[in-house]
Structure formats: structure tokens, C-alpha cells
Design a protein around this nucleic acid. Structure first.
Length: 103
DNA sequence: CGCCTGACGCAGG
DNA sequence: ACCTGCGCCAGGC
């Protein structure tokens, strides 16, 4: 899988995250590990930073439920509007965490 | 090549 | 709950 294909795979997966649910960078890397052979939360993070503009980027947070740096306000507002469970300024990961149906 | 950087993650203190 | 140190992979210089 080429680098740009990996980017597409990440964006496609992010688009599949249901409203009100979230995935962490690590979870995304992990979910794609099977198909891509590589798994790196950092890589997913940089991909979201550079190409996340066209997808529901607010549904991607870090494993602690922290919102994307520089976009906390926007992300929080959108998540709130979707009914995403929040604990203060972070997402309640146990309740909001989502994973694609394996298959 | 080596070195620094980055929307990360985990173990320790 | 917050800060630190280290591992991680890829990109820019």
C-alpha cells in the first residue's frame, strides 16, 4: 500500500465514524494495521493535520479523549451537537469509542 | 545519511 | 490529574 493510499484509507475510515461516536488516532492506526501492514498513531495524527479538512475530523481524538489541539472549541461544539458523551472538555471514551465492524 | 519535529500512546513518579 | 521519558513512523532539511 502506497503512502497516498494509506492517507485515503485513513480518511475513508474517519468518514465511517457515526455521529456522536469517536475513534482515537491509535485505534485508527490499529484498525488499518491489518490492511496496511503498518500502525502508527503519530502517522494518523499527521495525516489528519494535513488532510483532515474534508472529513469529520472532530470525531478523531487522542486515547485520553482530548480534542485536537487548536480546534478544541470547534470540535467540542460539534460533538456536543451530535450528542457525544463529554466529561468536561474531553470525550468519555468508554462510552463514545467506536470501532468498524470487522469484515 | 543524521537530526529535529509532530492533531500519538503508555508506563512511572 | 499532571508532568516526564521513551518508543513509534514518516517528512523536511
Amino acid at each position: 500500500m502506497r503512502p497516498d493510499e494509506y492517507v485515503e484509507a485513513v480518511l475513508e475510515l474517519v468518514e465511517r465514524i457515526p455521529p456522536g461516536r469517536v475513534m482515537s488516532y491509535g485505534a485508527i492506526a490499529d484498525a488499518l494495521a491489518d490492511r496496511s501492514g503498518r500502525a502508527s498513531a503519530r502517522l494518523v495524527g499527521s495525516i489528519m493535520a494535513r488532510h483532515g479538512g474534508g472529513v469529520p475530523w472532530h470525531r478523531v481524538v487522542n486515547s485520553a479523549g482530548r480534542l485536537p489541539p487548536g480546534h478544541e472549541r470547534e470540535a467540542r461544539a460539534r460533538l456536543l451537537a451530535e450528542g457525544c458523551p463529554l466529561r468536561g472538555d474531553r470525550v468519555d471514551m468508554p462510552r463514545a469509542g467506536w470501532s468498524p465492524e470487522p469484515g
